[in-house]
Amino acid sequence: MDDERMTPKELDSMIKHLAVSLEKPVYPDPMEAPWIALPHIKAGSIGWRMGGGEDYLSYFSDWFSQLSPDYQNNYCQNNPEPEGWQGFYERRKTSQQR
């Protein structure tokens, strides 16, 4: 049987690759719009600026920014902004263009 152990250099490379992979969150696709995922947090609430709401909004914004413009438009049509959330998608589209 051949010796299949990794060299120290190969092992170091694999550990670095895994560490980088773990830093990148894996998002469900599609993510639920914030008002669907956390309906108990109202638009404009401080709950979106701290705690679980802030985390979800951050993850959603990262996920949304990775979508193609066509996918974004389709998502927006299928998940319209409810009252109080007008401009939510447009702000995310604008922020990624900077």
Rank of each mutant, 00 (worst) to 15 (best):
Q97S: 12
W63G: 05
A19S: 11
G53D: 03
Q72S: 13
L38R: 09
G44Y: 10
V20R: 12
K16M: 12
P25T: 12
W63H: 05
Y59S: 11
F64S: 06
V26K: 04
I41K: 03
Y59R: 10
I41P: 01
W63K: 05
W35A: 13
S58C: 10
G53C: 07
R5Q: 07
G84I: 10
E4W: 02
G84P: 00
F64P: 02
Y75S: 08
E81S: 03
K42P: 00
R5W: 00
S45P: 00
K16H: 05
L18S: 06
D3M: 03
I36S: 03
E10A: 15
S58I: 08
F88K: 02
G44N: 11
S45L: 11
V20F: 08
P39N: 11
Y27R: 07
P80Y: 03
E32G: 06
D55M: 14
K24N: 08
F60S: 05
M6C: 06
E32L: 15
P25V: 14
D2Q: 04
A43Q: 05
G47F: 04
M50Q: 11
R91P: 00
G53T: 04
F64A: 11
R91D: 10
S68Q: 06
Y27I: 12
E83P: 00
E83S: 13
R92A: 09
L22C: 08
K93S: 01
M14V: 10
Y75R: 07
S21W: 05
D29H: 10
P82I: 15
R91A: 15
G51T: 13
A37L: 10
E90N: 04
P28M: 11
N78D: 10
Y71E: 15
E23C: 13
P80K: 03
K24E: 12
V20L: 15
P30N: 07
D29I: 07
S21G: 06
E83W: 00
M1V: 14
G87H: 02
I36W: 01
N79I: 13
L18H: 02
P28S: 15
Y75M: 10
E10W: 00
H17N: 09
N79C: 10
S21I: 08
D12T: 09
L22D: 06
E23A: 15
P69W: 08
E54P: 02
W63M: 08
K42H: 04
K16Q: 12
A37R: 13
E10Y: 00
N79H: 15
D2H: 02
D3Q: 02
P8D: 14
G44T: 14
D29N: 13
E23V: 08
V26I: 09
L57N: 12
A19T: 10
M6E: 10
Q97H: 02
N74A: 15
P82V: 15
Q66F: 00
S13Q: 10
E4S: 09
P39I: 14
A37N: 04
A33D: 05
Q86R: 04
R91Y: 00
K24W: 01
I46C: 03
A43N: 07
